[in-house]
Amino acid sequence: TCHSKGGEKEDVPLATYEHLAPFLKVNAVAVTGDWVKVEEPISTSKLTQSTHAHLLSFAVLFSLTGLIFACSSYPSSVRCALGPWVVVAVFADVSLWWLARLSDEWGPLFARGVIVTGGLAGLGLALQITLSLFNMYGAKGKVVIALLFLLGGAVGGLVIQSQIKPALDAKALAKQPEVKAPEGKQPDAKEAKTDTGKDEPKGKKDEPKGKGVALHRPIHDFD
């Protein structure tokens, strides 16, 4: 509408590949070792929703696991340290999301911190659960808990082998191919030429050509 004849920008025609070519150049960026923003982060409203969900659900759940652990018979120093550990880690985790988002200068550092706080939360939760369970029962109960853990480990291992690993492999494979695809897109230029002769659309005549054009996978997630 804008760049064809009679349009507001008819002085900048974009009808053929040659017309478009000057705008397709990608400026080379020197490798500096600094952080480079490669994709837009999620919107602030989505981050707010996620923060709300995490603080509401995880804080309640992890407070309860901490409370159960606090009622165990381990030394009070261990209970004082590990009881609130997970909740504190989750609060730190969510705080770092926002710090990473809001601070341009230190953002990447805070983003790396998210991995640490997430790991601490996971580790603390695993300790709280296993130590509480084993502290709760006598010898027989401990054997049952151990068997349940073994069973869970076996099922988890099976799921990893049969479901998760193949899915990850397929995902990795899907990301690799057809990077050259946009280069071979000459049909677009042809179609553009025919359209510019006259402004009238040639709908049905163009359809068979379109069917022959292969669909391309996105080069990366942002595409």
Partner: peptide
Amino acid sequence: TLRELPLPVKVVASVFLMAVGLGYTSAMVQ
């Protein structure tokens, strides 16, 4: 302490702990 709790309470607490563990693990895997 946890050991002195009645058995039904222990079972509920155990199921809760295991459910939290499983839920957290599956959320992380996803």
